[in-house]
Computed example of a mutant assay.
Amino acid sequence: MSGLLILRQEVVADGGDSSTLERDARRGRIVRLTAGAYVRADEWAALTRAEQHGARVHAVVPRLGPDTFVSHESALALQGFPLLGEWPTRVHVVSRGRPRTKVSSTVHRHAVALRNDETSVVQGLPVVLPRRAAVDVVRRRDLRGGAVVLDHGLAVGAFSRGDLEGVLAEHGRAQGSRRAAASVAFADGRAESPGESISRAAMHSAGLTRPELQARLPAEGSLVGFVDFWWPCCGVIGEFDGEVKYRDAAMRAGRTAEQVVVEEKLREDALRALPGVRTVVRWGWAEALAVEPLLRKLARAGVC
């Protein structure tokens, strides 16, 4: 990531004219991340939002001095976590010995306690470990936002539930601890996407019967498939349909989008034919984010 950066000091050291950088920034050829640090506009546009935030981290943090650690959302961005909503415009760090929080246009310095065993090095930068960064982030997010972060961390093995509970026990007096504890208790590493996480949170908040996650159908015998959500009480299968399975070439594994759609239809027909299955309910990002459309679909199917 740091290889993307164009640094004024390196341009000058190589005999270049630093004034051309600002001129190119005004013309839209490069993007200014912070004073003296830029990225080519075409390379910037090709990055995901998380990668763009990671580039900001690499532009800002090396200038902040010793005993400064990338934290909160910024630490999660460097370690491949998803986030519900936009990534922050400021880089989040923890600076040891700082008596109070300080916020500038580019940096949010948190005044919080940090132990040596809560840090590591990622992409050459000193970074707060995922378990600590995740708990700090979900203190300020609702259940949906917390589930997106924590489900992912559990799924990829970045931490265990015990790790998260240990952080809560160590820093239990911090603001938002009750909210974080609720998110930790709710988190489930069986969720395979942020869309599944926010859908499950919507179901939980609405008081719906808790579904089985990634259920094998049928439970015994020849496998037809694993489903995102399964309510055996009413014979309802729930599937979150993210567009990535149709657009991502790696996930299509050489198949066209049309082939993926046909295979999904055949799979759904086979699931509907199983004993005990009444119906299959599908939804996407728009319905999961709006919540009510998702709940109406489930109610019509008989989930309560």
Rank of each mutant, 00 (worst) to 15 (best):
F159M: 09
H110V: 06
A134P: 01
A158H: 11
R131C: 10
T106Q: 11
V148S: 00
R100C: 09
L168I: 00
S120H: 04
H171N: 05
D163C: 03
G162K: 13
V107L: 00
V138N: 01
L143G: 08
R141Q: 15
S105C: 12
E165Q: 14
V156G: 05
V156W: 07
R141I: 04
S104R: 07
D151I: 14
T101K: 08
R141C: 10
R161Y: 10
R132N: 01
G124M: 14
A134N: 10
G146C: 12
V112P: 08
R115T: 10
V137A: 13
A134E: 01
S105M: 11
N116F: 05
H110F: 12
N116A: 09
G162E: 15
T101D: 13
V156A: 07
V127L: 06
L125K: 06
R140Y: 07
A113Y: 04
V127K: 03
L154Y: 12
R131A: 13
R139W: 14
G172D: 11
V148E: 05
E170K: 11
G157H: 06
V107I: 05
S120Q: 06
R144P: 02
A155H: 15
A113M: 05
V107D: 02
G153L: 08
D117F: 04
V135M: 10
T106G: 04
D163I: 01
N116I: 03
D163H: 05
L168N: 00
T101C: 08
A134T: 02
G145S: 12
P126D: 15
R139C: 10
H152N: 04
V148Q: 05
L150K: 02
R140V: 08
G166I: 07
R100D: 06
H108R: 10
S105Y: 06
P126C: 10
E165C: 11
R161M: 13
V167W: 00
R140T: 08
P126A: 13
G162R: 14
V103D: 06
H108F: 14
L164V: 00
G153M: 07
V156K: 08
R161D: 12
D142F: 03
D163N: 04
R141G: 10
V156S: 07
G124W: 15
V121N: 04
A113P: 04
A169F: 10
H171F: 09
G146N: 10
L143H: 08
V135D: 00
L125S: 08
R132T: 00
S160Q: 11
S105T: 13
D117G: 02
R144A: 15
G166F: 14
S104G: 14
D117I: 02
L164H: 07
G145T: 03
D136G: 06
V103P: 02
H171G: 03
L150E: 02
